[in-house]
Simulated scan of single mutants.
Amino acid sequence: MAKLSFLAGFGAGYVLGARAGRERYEQIRRGWDRAKDDPRLQSLAGMAQARADDALSSIRTRMGSDTPR
């Protein structure tokens, strides 16, 4: 009897948890989709990429390898 109660409780918890988990996942995904399409974020990403490219170029110059890879 104890095993049956445990399995019933486990099953109910699993179903309810899976449902809540999926809803939260969808909420996070919608937030990410909105954020990645935001022009402000795109601008920041472009600036970060430019700074990273400059830093890499500087490092290559210091190491004596001026040819980009």
Rank of each mutant, 00 (worst) to 15 (best):
R29C: 02
F10L: 14
M47C: 07
G31Q: 14
F10A: 15
G21C: 06
A8S: 07
K3G: 00
A8N: 09
R29P: 03
L56C: 00
Q42L: 10
A45M: 12
A2W: 10
R69F: 09
K36R: 13
I59T: 04
T61I: 13
R62D: 15
S58W: 07
T61N: 15
S5C: 10
R22A: 13
A35T: 05
G46T: 02
S65F: 14
A50H: 14
R22S: 08
Q27F: 05
A45D: 11
L16C: 03
A35N: 01
R60Q: 10
R62H: 13
R69Y: 04
S5R: 13
L41C: 06
T61K: 14
A55T: 09
R60F: 09
D66V: 15
W32S: 12
K36T: 02
S65C: 10
D38W: 12
A35C: 07
L44Y: 08
A50E: 13
Q27T: 14
G21S: 02
K36Y: 01
I59E: 06
Q49V: 12
A55M: 08
R19E: 13
S43N: 10
V15Y: 01
L44D: 07
P68N: 02
R34P: 04
S65M: 15
R24S: 09
Q42V: 06
A8M: 01
L16F: 07
R22F: 03
L44V: 06
L56A: 11
A48Q: 04
M63D: 10
M1A: 09
M63K: 13
S58E: 11
W32H: 11
A45C: 11
Q27W: 13
D54C: 03
F6S: 02
D33Y: 03
L16G: 04
A20D: 09
Y25C: 08
